[in-house]
Write a protein that binds this DNA or RNA. Structure first.
Lengths: 338, 338
DNA sequence: GCTGGCACTCACATGCGAAGAGTGCCAAGA
DNA sequence: TCTTGGCACTCTTCGCATGTGAGTGCCAGC
């Protein structure tokens, strides 16, 4: 177990390194923080911290920089979440309040997060699986062609074409539309399958094939979790990554384009509260020099999706966590209102 | 006017520079291209080309690199469009054929373009203004709250909430829905305003306010050109920009995030055919060291939107133009089918 | 357990010289 | 008039040696 002072030293190292981007030495540390001890003592502590793997030297005769393990300790034990100031909170609310639809909410959230944290922001669209059905609409585009439109309580709209096995009259369509909505409107996605199970039985024999086709398309749409989309912004902030970023920036950009990777990453964070993943804790190789701070957000008490930021492991964790948490909270409010 | 041989020299310089990314000298030129003259002659030609502003030296005693003006001449007079090979064409078609909906078509197109050109791909969603209405759907969410869903012939769906001035019964809503669709279905957006102008007159006095509100929301949705969205991909290719890219990449990323800039850029290219804008021909400062190759695409003969790539001025113009043209063509086909 | 002192180690900047690529110019030849 | 070979000149780049400074590790003393 590390002594209290050594933890202080680690905290100081993290703070200084995050601020200066340069390895921090014992002398500079004692000058900037009043630890009450001499550089020599700090050197001993640093040596111990290095033995434990919390900090490392880029090369001999250079200062120390925190390791992933060091950041982890910092985040878990040494740093709190820095709350937003009142003006900041007001700015967030104002900015989000102007949104006109779901796309706009997500777009604004991304911009906001990127600006606040000066990092790459990632916002997942409210997930289908946990939301409820607001309305299902069926439109006859041709005698044997129906467009299925699904509207969720979060304002999301999904549409699908359905090619029917047989022509389907407008009366039947209206019937199906009415029956379908009376059963599923307001219900959670998970419950839909069994609610519509026996629906084909209510129709004439000739229409049953079509009804089944429509229903299975609907269920497909509901299940298709991989349809989860996300929006990314603030990639220009990647250029502030560090001096050596030509090498680091590329795999990060690639990973960001592979939305699958990000979705998996967000999905892995089972904790509905804030999750911080640091450097090599992230399975994806291209993101090994980044940290991801994510949190769930939702319209009610329940989280329907995640948002977060991707930045260098050398990031201002308290500030970033504060911004992420605040934004998630306000987005939740906005969604609840609409 | 430049002599034939000098044009050859310019072409050779562009080709070599694009290939090697290094200033090209007279000796290397004569070695790689059989121009039939000696390096000394080429030097004279180069000197003339430099006087005319087609090429420049980064510094004395270095080779020459093409200027924006040089690339312009190259694109206009010296280079054709390199057609895709048969296997490439097949790959394009296969890749795009798997798309399930409009979002997917756009997403696949972006990926494809980025891969083919190894540059940043930009695809505009099929624009609303030039398309036709397939269907307008109205849903009562609450007594005085209606959701308006607009479906276009390109498969795009837009939805809006409408807060009605007065409660609006389901019969009235059904009436409005029917009348609205009979008038506007299949019509071009531009024609919609006058088609629905007198629609409120057909309703009871108490409903007219609501009808007007719904209609004006519809018109707003149609007009809102700034709702034009686009998808961007292949930003990781920016890292191949050049050795000095730390400076160049940042403004480009910023410009790419400002979708407004890109939309303006695409919109400016009035030529429905291919447009190439090179370096300082682009008004936006951050893109001054890039070139943009764009082309319209559409489901019928008419272009409904643009797509293109953003890359360094030092790009393979013939190849890029070939890829852009081919992709646009196939996307048009896909859209026409659906 | 803390502290000051001291030797040691590297990275980094600086300066210098050699090498190399490329140009510009000139005089001769077609 | 255009082309060509030759030659001097200009810069960049690279390698190398050197000096400097930040920072460490260790040790003896308090």
């Amino acid at each position: 177990m590390l002594s209290e002072r050594r933890l202080q030293v680690l905290r100081a190292i993290v703070q200084d390194y995050v601020g200066t981007e340069e390895p921090v030495g014992s002398k500079a540390l004692t000058e900037r923080h009043n630890l009450g001890v001499s550089p020599a003592t700090v050197r001993n502590d640093m040596s111990a911290l290095e033995d434990e793997g919390y900090i490392a030297q880029p090369h001999t005769s250079a200062g120390r920089i925190p390791t992933d393990k060091g950041y982890r300790l910092f985040v878990d034990k040494l740093a709190g979440v820095k709350p937003m100031t009142a003006p900041e909170r007001r700015a967030i609310q104002n900015f989000l309040d102007g949104a006109v639809d779901l796309d706009d909410v997500v777009a604004r959230t991304v911009r906001l997060l990127a600006q606040l944290t000066r990092q790459v922001a990632v916002v997942q669209y409210p997930s289908l699986t946990r939301s409820t059905v607001r309305h299902v609409e069926l439109l006859a585009l041709a005698p044997a062609r129906v467009m299925l439109v699904l509207i969720t309580d979060t304002g999301r709209v999904e549409q699908r074409m359905v090619d029917c096995p047989a022509p389907f009259g407008e009366p039947s369509l209206a019937d199906l539309r009415a029956r379908l909505n009376s059963r599923v409107a307001g219900r959670r996605f998970a419950d839909v399958p069994q609610l519509v199970e026996d629906l084909p039985d209510a129709f004439e024999h000739e229409d049953r094939g079509t009804v089944s086709t429509v229903l299975s398309t609907l269920l497909e749409t509901l299940v298709e979790e991989n349809e989860e989309r996300l929006m990314i912004g603030g990639t220009a902030n990647l250029t502030r990554f560090g001096h050596d970023f030509p090498l680091t920036i590329r795999p990060v950009l690639e990973a960001l384009e592979e939305q699958v990777v990000l979705l998996k990453l967000l999905g892995e964070a089972k904790d509905p509260g804030m999750t911080v993943r640091i450097g090599h804790e992230i399975a994806h190789e291209g993101l090994n020099s980044t940290s991801v701070v994510s949190v769930g957000y939702g319209s009610g008490g329940e989280a329907v999706a995640k948002l977060g930021v991707v930045g260098p492991t050398r990031m201002d964790y308290p500030g970033t966590m504060g911004a992420v948490r605040a934004v998630a909270r306000y987005v939740g409010q906005i969604l609840a209102e609409s």
